[in-house]
């Protein structure tokens, strides 16, 4: 069988988990074995939700100490389940928890782990493709080990439900946990008092780079963002200059965004920036350099000084809104 680690919120699987299940089902099909899942704290409807993606059995880990996230205890639970079920492979989403839990499992079992995989040819060894450099480079690799451990790259796999789902059977699993397994756990959640549209959820993102020139000059971009109900993003260069906070940074070590429209102004389009915005449906670049990589990547481009174009655009949008 293939075991999948599914993250869910009140029974609703996270997108990255559903993407992972789509690949996990493919792997199970290649082995001709069933797909099963492990979840922590049974949310209403989780069995039905994962059943729609081909999971036949859901192992619900039930233990008082770990209702909330506890990386080592969750990993130890998965580890014990792996010992019991002896799956061919364990797949987890390429999320923060997915990577963390599976890395612990790998370490406990002395096995290798392949992070952020895109596709797998299963066999005695697995031949797989995985992301390097946050997805700007791909690696074809061979994974060995008694149990193959892999995480699945987020936002890369188009999800697919099975034709006639029956829902999955639920089974409780009681791990045996020592105090030590419980030493690290989620203590509380602090809500941020940030206002405005979070970068990851914005439909439009107006973004600025080194070409903006100063923190003050970002005012023009802020105004454009206001007019478009957009969020503000930035390149790492603008963050390093101290013009923006790191919360705004788009890219390999910043936010990964997938808006309908991305408007990079004065951003050159380095690979580490582009992996953050490749999910954007449309890119409208404003840049003085026609040779800049961002112009190549864009759907629309204006080859001009952003300090002239952005205020003129703001004016035009304001007029249009006033006229309407």
């Amino acid at each position: 069988m293939i075991l999948s680690f599914v993250e869910h919120e009140d029974g609703k699987p996270e997108d990255s988990s559903v993407e992972m299940l789509t690949l996990a089902r493919d792997v199970a099909g290649q082995h001709d074995v069933p797909l099963e899942a492990v979840v922590f704290s049974a949310g209403e409807g989780v069995a039905e939700a994962v059943g729609a993606f081909g999971v036949e059995t859901v192992h619900v880990v039930d233990h008082d100490g770990i209702r909330d996230y506890a990386p080592e205890a969750w990993a130890e639970s998965v580890n014990q389940l792996v010992s019991e079920l002896e799956p061919e492979a364990v797949l987890a989403p390429g999320s923060e928890r997915g990577h963390e839990v599976l890395a612990h499992v790998a370490s406990k079992r002395g096995l290798p782990m392949a992070a952020n995989c895109l596709d797998v040819t299963a066999g005695e060894a697995y031949e797989l493709t995985r992301q390097r450099w946050g997805g700007t480079l791909l690696e074809n690799a061979r994974l060995t080990g008694e149990t193959k451990l892999l995480t699945v790259a987020p936002n890369e796999i188009s999800t697919e439900q099975i034709a006639d789902p029956n829902g999955a059977t639920t089974r409780e699993f009681q791990p045996t946990l020592a105090d030590e397994d419980l030493r690290v756990g989620l203590v509380e959640i602090e809500e941020s008092d940030e206002e405005g549209i979070p970068l990851g959820e914005a439909r439009i993102v107006v973004s600025g780079g080194r070409g903006v020139g100063s923190a003050e000059e970002f005012d023009k971009l802020e105004e454009l963002a206001d007019l478009l109900d957009a969020a503000i993003g930035s390149s790492r260069a603008a963050v390093n200059e101290g013009w923006r906070s790191h919360d705004d940074q788009v890219g390999q070590t910043g936010a990964k965004i997938s808006p309908t429209l991305y408007i990079p102004c004065g951003i050159s389009g380095a690979v580490q920036h582009m992996v953050g915005c490749k999910g954007a449906e449309n890119i409208l670049a404003i840049n003085t350099d026609p040779e800049a990589a961002i112009v190549d990547h864009a759907d629309y481009a204006v080859i001009a000084d952003l300090h002239e174009v952005v205020p003129a655009l703001n004016e035009a949008i304001r007029e249009q809104k006033d006229g309407a």
């Binding site: 096995l111 290798p112 782990m113 392949a114 031949e127 390097r132 997805g135 700007t136 480079l137 791909l138 690696e139 074809n140 690799a141 061979r142 994974l143 060995t144 080990g145 409208l284 670049a285 026609p290 112009v295 190549d296 990547h297 864009a298 759907d299 629309y300 481009a301 204006v302 080859i303 001009a304 002239e308 174009v309 003129a312 655009l313 035009a316």
Partner: peptide
């Protein structure tokens, strides 16, 4: 346990770029 076989660049599905202009005169096109 995880052996690199080869590296490859991801395909970029970049289509054509529509150049809307080279000055603020591009605003109506935007």
């Amino acid at each position: 346990g995880l052996e690199k076989l080869s590296l490859q660049s991801p395909e970029d599905d970049d289509g054509e770029t529509d150049i809307l202009g080279d000055s603020p005169d591009a605003v109506p096109a935007i």
